[in-house]
Amino acid sequence: MSKEIKPKRRDFLFTATYTVGAVGLGVTIWPLVDQMNPDSSVKALSTTEVDISSIEPGKTITVLWRGKPIFIRRRTKKEIAEAAAVDLKDLKDPQKDSERAKNPEWLVMVGVCTHLGCVPLGDKGEYKAWFCPCHGSHYDSSGRIRKGPAPKNLEIPKYEFVDNNTIKIG
């Protein structure tokens, strides 16, 4: 009888010690990993405000956000109509233009090709919009992939109009 109790007690002590030790080890590892996450000065720059008052229709500006280029284009009525008229069946990555540009006059996109990361050139390519010279991806006036190896449309970041002249990205 006593022989049964003894091993149980002994095992409990060792199990408890291992468990408490393992918890401590895990808790210790976390800061060592978390310090590699973005620090608070980087996180503070995770949003940026852009003054769009001086952009003419048909013109694009490029700003830096989180280290990446952002294309902000003030589209002409012609461009908006073209973008809306595209049949979703023709798109590799189907997406309505109204989903991409809530305010159709303004197109805000991350200027990084979804293939391998080059910056596409503006006012170029078969669709007279954006063309990536690295591997020949063509994007249309809504930034959607039409031809070439890129798998997805140019990413739309989170943004909002602070007022008529300013948008906040991120």
Binding site: R10, L13, F14, A16, T17, V20, G21, G24, V27
Partner: peptide, 16 residues
């Protein structure tokens, strides 16, 4: 708090 607990457990384990 944690170290005191672990210290106690390790001490008892060591004695055993």
């Amino acid at each position: 708090f944690y170290l005191i607990i672990l210290l106690t457990l390790v001490y008892l384990s060591k004695q055993k």
